[in-house]
Amino acid sequence: MEQIDKKHSPGFPLLKSVLKHRILYAMLIPGIVYLFIFKYIPLFGSVIAFKDYNIYKGIWASDWVGFKYFYQFFNYPQFTRLLWNTLAISFYQTIFAFPAPIILALLLNELRNAAFKRSVQTILYLPHFLSWVIIGGLGYMLMSPQVGLINQWIAAFGFEKIHFLQEPGYFRSIIITSGIWKEMGWNAIIFLAALAGISPSLYEAAKIDGAGRWKQFLHITMPGILPAVMLLLLLKIGHTLDLGFEQIYIFLNPITYATGDVLDTYSYREGIIQGKYSMTTAIGLFKAVVGFLLLLMANRASKSLTGQGIF
């Protein structure tokens, strides 16, 4: 009774404010409900990693089994292969694919002809809008031993044709190359913006002091984009175990599992197709925890090295 009285009393500002803006609050309902159903429920539903998920009992009534599925996954004979493949591809991405757009932005920045610069950008941004399936198709065609252009060239030089997609040795190179091909141009936009944000007066002052283009690049351009580079590097490290399922899955086949089967593709096969829900959720949680720890570590390292971090 007391509460009801309180609610109706004019002196209760929160309720008055809520009632006054009830339409605004009502607008928020679909978004809040969506996030609750598709983000929060599955987040709590991740407890099935610690349970024996039973279709008939559902998420909440299934029996607790503790860390059984984590043990099972860590003791799985291919566990090291999965983890190693994931880490190796991620490492190559960081070494080769991450710097590509930075270098591209720096080269574009040095161009003197604006029309040429625009044309290059238009062409290099295009692949970003093609789906991974289409790029997969381009790749299959290009590397096809029967009709593909690359093997035509290899044959023209008198070498043996190569079944690129059927050779585990080429898988990681294909992933890195196709990733650069698709996203190099697009990812350069952020760095181009960082470059555009450098004050022209810095360059003017450097010129007066007699600094050539190389000196300007070293002492103005590089420090100017460093914050953007660090930020994106941190985000990349936080996503070390997320490699982009769509990309890997389109090129992967059982022959290339040896070098290309990663945590995500394994989770999909075992989880969705085989129905091992609890075990693959354990993999998902493992990924989330490792990703979060890596992010914390990288953030700390970045703070002590450059004084910048995300949080």
């Binding site: 539903g45 969705i272 959720t281 998902g284 989330a288």
Partner: peptide
């Protein structure tokens, strides 16, 4: 809202929902 961007659920529990 931002919480769900940092801690996102694994593939399988979403599938089950």
């Amino acid at each position: 809202i931002v919480f769900t961007m940092i801690f996102y659920p694994p593939m399988i529990p979403v599938y089950l929902v």
